[in-house]
């Protein structure tokens, strides 16, 4: 049985002390806000969050066969944020990652701040932010946004994990980043498929639970900016950094890095640029946007197939 769906649980020893501590600082700052916001809610919310944490933990075991012995899995950050609101979603994911690290040694203790940031906080923020755009709109759009958020959340996690590994001097940016992003671009599709179909199921059976009119826990429209900012960060920085690691490498020159061999063996779009547009930043950004479009089209087709399935049912 697989308990950890994706290669994002960093063990101890892979991140330098300084990167671990900075990640902890960011994580603690965000979590303290999350705790303050959720403490205002009624006491019923705490058992609910606890059970939802167990739900995410168990749901990560549900898989579906893809091909050649690999299988699709759920990470769940986006689903948790949409079901419970962003702050509660973050706390739920923190509990899940914390228990995976503490009890199962799936992810280290000193690096847990980084793991929570990559898999819990970023995913919840991006997922809820994009979902919020669809407030009061059609269900189809909401599902599409959730699916896009799910894919981007996995990519965001892969991006920050690679950056942390690189900043720690554990991995070479020009290899680890395209490899991580390439693998997770595929893993993210599994996340999208499961998140969208799970939400569609809940929409069909208990739409009342997805009613946004619930008060402070749900978070305001400001989340749209947070979600958009992280999405842009992922869509712009990942192609830029993959195609031109030299710029980032110069910053970390004193960490003892060599900048050589720029070819990205695993990237889907070669070097994350479009050959006919040349090598510039514009080309890489265009490649990022095309990547996002591909996902959007994919999500559209999933929803189409879901609707026909509903009609047939």
């Amino acid at each position: 049985m697989h308990f950890s769906p994706i290669l994002l649980h960093i063990p101890d020893g892979f991140l330098s002390t300084i990167v671990s501590l900075i990640s902890w600082a960011i994580t603690i700052a965000i979590l303290s806000v999350a705790v303050k916001r959720t403490e205002k809610l009624d006491e019923k919310q705490v058992p609910l969050m606890g059970i939802m944490a167990a739900f995410i933990f168990a749901a990560q075991m549900i898989n579906f066969p893809v091909a050649g012995g690999t299988s699709g899995h759920l990470l769940g950050g986006v689903l948790a944020a949409i079901l419970l609101g962003p702050w509660a979603g973050m706390l739920v994911m923190t509990a899940v990652i914390g228990v995976q690290g503490l009890l199962l040694q799936d992810g280290g203790l000193l690096v847990m701040g980084a793991n929570i940031l990559n898999m819990g906080l970023l995913t919840a923020a991006i997922g809820f932010g994009l979902y919020k755009v669809g407030d009061g709109r059609k269900r189809t759009l909401k599902l599409g946004l959730a699916g896009l958020g799910a894919w981007l959340s996995v990519m965001a996690g892969a991006l920050t994990t690679s950056l942390q590994l690189w900043l720690s001097g554990t991995a070479r940016l020009d290899i680890v980043l395209p490899a991580m992003l390439g693998v997770h671009a595929v893993i993210g599709i599994g996340e999208t498929l499961i998140t969208v179909s799970a939400l569609a199921f809940i929409f069909r059976t208990r739409p009342d639970l997805l009613d946004p009119a619930e008060g402070p826990a749900r978070g305001g429209r400001g989340w749209i900016f947070v979600g958009a900012a992280i999405s842009l960060f992922v869509l712009i920085l990942s192609p830029l950094a993959s195609s031109n690691p030299d710029g980032l490498e110069r910053v970390a020159g004193d960490l003892g890095f060599l900048a050589q061999g720029k070819d990205a063996p695993f990237s889907i779009l070669p070097d994350y640029t479009l050959p006919f547009l040349g090598e510039g930043a514009f080309s890489t950004i265009a490649a990022g946007i095309i990547g996002a479009l591909v996902v959007a089209i994919l999500v559209f087709f999933i929803i189409q197939s879901l609707r026909t399935a509903k009609k047939n049912a």
Binding site: A58, G190, L193, L199, F201
Partner: peptide, 11 residues
């Protein structure tokens, strides 16, 4: 994938 998603929803 949809079957797996329905299972998550059911759970």
């Amino acid at each position: 994938a949809r079957t797996a998603g329905n299972m998550v929803g059911q759970l």
